[in-house]
Amino acid sequence: MTGWLGPEEWQAVALSLKVAIWATILSLPFAIFVSHALARWDFRGKQIANGVVHLPLILPPVVTGYLLLLIFGVTGPGGRLLDALGLGIAFQWTGAALAAAIMGFPLMVRAIRQSIEAVDQRLEDAAATLGASRLQIFATVTLPLALPGVLTGTILGFAKAMGEFGATITFVSNIPGQTQTLPSAIYSFLQVPGGETAAMRLVIISIIIAMAALILSEVFARRIKNRMEGA
């Protein structure tokens, strides 16, 4: 692989995978929690919470990136707090992961929330009559039955994290080896004369990763479906 890809290109691919995987893994539990709350609970300010979750989907990514910069930048309140904890994220790959996670979050929540809403609440009632607490019902009935949607949400979130550009470049800039993800690298190559071939190689890799993710989720979804229908 490294023979075909230049070191800078390879770096961008590896960094993007790292950023996307961390963004996905860390946001998934929150996405499941928020999806369940929005699907099943009634609480004050539910509409506002729903709006905030979806904001990154509707705002221009540059705006989201700038807001992140204001909050988590070196002088922002969140940034200073993280710095004090030794977890500075401004202009680091962890910042790129945060931006990717936030941009992918609404996509995850939409898919997971829908699949939780589709779980038959009568099955949850049945579990309660059999002695299951709310947490147990969620873990043993709701979540397993919503698994196909959780999977879809994870893939969507991952794909979004791989492709995130606007918020990332605004928040953590475009530093090779630090914050230069696949899309930023493609953008950079297109800015220099003769960079088209390198850009094209990265485009092909993007397509391969996206297709692999889709096929993988399809395989898992089918396996889950088969398991549900049973032998």
């Binding site: 009568r122 099955l123 049945a126 309660a128 009559t129 009935v141």
Partner: peptide, 22 residues
């Protein structure tokens, strides 16, 4: 008392078996 603490055996019209379990 929450349902799960009532020690019931509830037989529903529509069985309501968990489809993802044997």
């Amino acid at each position: 008392l929450p349902t799960h603490q009532r020690q019931l055996g509830y037989i529903f019209q529509d069985a309501r078996l968990f489809p993802h379990m044997s």
